[in-house]
Design a protein around this nucleic acid. Sequence first.
DNA 1: TTCATACTTCGACCATAACCGAAGCATTGC
DNA 2: GCAATGCTTCGGTTATGGTCGAAGTATGAA
Lengths: 224, 224
Amino acid sequence: MKEGPIIASVAALLGDPARANMLSALMDGRALTVSELAVAAGVTVQTASGHLSKLKDANLVAAEKQGRHRYFRLSGNDVADVLEALMGLAERTGAKRVRTGPKDAALRDARVCYDHLAGSRSVELFDSLAARGLISCMDAPTLTPAGRAFFIGFGIDVARLEKGRRPLCRTCLDWSERRNHLAGALGAAILAEFSARGWVRRGPGRLVGFTVLGQEQLGSLFGI
Amino acid sequence: MKEGPIIASVAALLGDPARANMLSALMDGRALTVSELAVAAGVTVQTASGHLSKLKDANLVAAEKQGRHRYFRLSGNDVADVLEALMGLAERTGAKRVRTGPKDAALRDARVCYDHLAGSRSVELFDSLAARGLISCMDAPTLTPAGRAFFIGFGIDVARLEKGRRPLCRTCLDWSERRNHLAGALGAAILAEFSARGWVRRGPGRLVGFTVLGQEQLGSLFGI
DNA sequence: TTCATACTTCGACCATAACCGAAGCATTGC
DNA sequence: GCAATGCTTCGGTTATGGTCGAAGTATGAA
């Protein structure tokens, strides 16, 4: 029953403000350089470098060298998921937010969670997909034949996604809504397709805004 | 975008080995005294007392006084969920277990997650319920009319559960299986009923063992 | 080659907090 | 009442780790 320490080592890494800020900055799925992350965390580069090597040793982030830059990204979707879950817990237990910005409401509406959509719009989308029988849900959500046809028609190469190592459908507990939204390869592909169609536009950080076109299409296609 | 610190304060609390051990000990849903938790964490009572007041201030645990004892329990299911998620992440990223005990395999099979079942048996149960149309799944799992009838027949007072503040069905990401199992009021009620029927027996800590009767019934009722 | 940029390593400093011994309350039992 | 148990508070020690300045390495540009 000595599983305490195993979680402590990971949690301790997330428990430092500087590292937490860096990981938060990475939650939009982009890869950032050491200097960018240093700014995000409000520390010097050498401090950031030290933090990042610890995160790398723990496999929470992955590094990629490109010229004289070194790009860091989260090592996987599950890291983002845990961060979301921690935000939810912090919210529920009333950990005081340092400074609740004006972007907060917009973030609750729609944001990026690593590589897929999160926020109230995303939860509604999940509901709609399930209600229309495009997705069925066992222990993990599954794409129905109807859903498969729908998304192929929508322009998503479902067959390619299915070939990948990554599960097609996953649930992810939404930080602000405390309900599930769709993650996994399909979740990522949907965001990519929305973006390609000009339905959404990336804002600073994790922020995502739906365009007028996007709002219309979301309404007519999914009834949201 | 300063949401880093908000998660850092919670994560820092989980990041101390002594506190992590105490929280792990509480994951079986029981309430424990300060002295018991001190033993579990391997520290003196006064140290444990200090840790517990911090956890209490952060609303991660709740305290209840009974005579000269003070009982602590997790403040909610979501705390246990986050701990499970952290264990999953630690597992995936290869944080070395300090000492992988012989109970490990048994724990993967069936264990308690705060107040409901977790482990491979639990995931299989969820699958079976969904496959039989007793539960349908939108963003959160929902009890179907057939499922409602089934569980009433099973001896669970579904109406009473529905009246409570707590959601009837919830998913919880299984640490060992990395798939969802059933949580929420129904999940808790199922464990209670299994226990009352003598299908399962609590072992030390989070361990749960299925009795011979339980195995048979699980097979005939759910095909597991 | 020389310079500039991006990053890492080293060393020293400092603050936080984990820890325990000792003492102080509170509750129960005798 | 007095003793015993369970827990909390206080004080002092210790050490872990976050921080930055300075120096070192690697890559790219002039």
